[in-house]
């Protein structure tokens, strides 16, 4: 545990140089969408709750499917693996430290947005909301881990990962409502795990469901388990540089 804590402290120090990326991914990009929505005007009290729940998920995408995924990809580069070979810490321990670091970074924004979205909602089921936040963190973190492990080339990752994050945001009702969309588009949205995270959060805040909440929990749970198994398999190979040959 000591090594994990030291790993988190090291990652926080390492993030100093990337502070503007962190601010952009966690605050500026997600908030810019809210800003555009607010420009439309005629915002009801209830809409604020809707947009803030969208912001929670958008900031998780920025943090995990964006920054974290790029960091995992960076970690898996041969020269970075070799650099970490100079320290008395294993790659799985580093990965746990990274995951916890990015969760910690996201917490203040999530906590504040959660409080406000509950405050402005007409209805709130705190148990489902909390469960929704936890499963959203795990699902989007897993997605980031998967992307980071899948894209082996760091230069490609820097282009592909922001594009995928943008796709995840676009094909999910983060800042728009699904009620008036056609059926085909709704089906496409349901492939995106982000839609299910939003579904759970919004149902807990009294918004109409896109699909039954049980299906969303099931979908996300299966996704988390599958990616967890994939990650374990990736790291099970003790000889980590082998995969590059």
């Amino acid at each position: 545990m000591d090594k994990i804590i030291t790993g988190i402290q090291m990652e926080f120090k390492s993030l100093r140089i990337y502070k503007w990326q962190v601010i952009t991914y966690l605050l500026i990009l997600p908030l810019s969408y809210i800003f555009v929505m607010l420009l439309f005007g005629n915002i009801q009290r209830n809409d604020i709750s809707y947009l803030l729940s969208g912001y929670i998920i958008a900031s998780l995408i920025g943090s995990f499917a964006g920054l974290f995924a790029i960091r995992v990809c960076n970690l898996m580069q041969p020269e970075v693996l070799e650099l970490y070979a100079t320290f008395f810490i294993t790659i799985p321990q580093i990965l746990i430290s990274l995951s916890l670091t990015y969760i910690i970074i996201s917490i203040p924004g999530i906590a504040l947005s959660s409080l406000l979205s509950i405050k402005y909602a007409n209805f709130a089921n705190l148990l489902i909301f909390t469960g929704g936040i936890i499963i959203s963190i795990l699902a989007i973190l897993s997605l980031g881990l998967f992307l980071g492990l899948l894209i082996k080339n760091m230069f490609k990752a820097q282009g592909i990962i922001p594009l995928l994050s943008w796709g995840l945001l676009l094909f999910a009702p983060v800042y728009y409502k699904v009620q008036h969309l056609n059926l085909l588009y709704k089906v496409i949205l349901l492939i995106n795990p982000v839609t299910h995270t939003l579904n759970i959060l919004r149902i807990s805040l009294g918004f109409p469901e896109i699909i039954n909440i049980r299906w969303s929990f099931l979908y996300l749970s299966v996704l988390i388990i599958v990616i967890f198994i994939y990650s374990i398999k990736s790291f099970k190979r003790f000889y980590i540089l082998e995969k590059f040959y």
Binding site: M10, L15, E82, L83, T86
Partner: peptide, 12 residues
């Protein structure tokens, strides 16, 4: 271990 390649933690 000290590797052959020049490696460093850029931010540290």
């Amino acid at each position: 271990y000290a590797p052959q390649t020049i490696l460093y933690y850029p931010s540290l």
